[in-house]
């Protein structure tokens, strides 16, 4: 089980704000997780939110040394710490 502390709160990637970082912990959708992992979003990887599209969705994150964009609904399956 994961240790839950005050500054180690778990949340969805889609809830992060620009500039915030987190570590990928788990996924809530199996099928989507395969695609995300193939794109380098592995458990244990650091992600940083780079920007949101002008209309608020999708979002761009930095992961595994490159920039990836995904819809908020897709980011919501990524649980980060």
């Amino acid at each position: 089980m994961m240790i839950e502390g005050k500054n180690k709160k778990q949340m969805k990637l889609s809830q992060l704000k620009v500039g915030q970082t987190g570590t990928i912990m788990a996924f809530t959708d199996l099928e989507m997780s395969v695609k995300l992992m193939e794109m380098g979003c592995l458990p244990g990887e650091m992600v940083e939110v780079e920007r949101f599209a002008p209309l608020g969705d999708p979002m761009a994150i930095r992961v595994a040394g490159y920039q990836l964009c995904l819809r908020k609904s897709e980011a919501a399956v990524i649980i980060i710490q």
Partner: peptide, 11 residues
Amino acid sequence: EKSYFIMELPV
């Protein structure tokens, strides 16, 4: 085909 929008933003 499932519609993904998980896409690389190349430099």
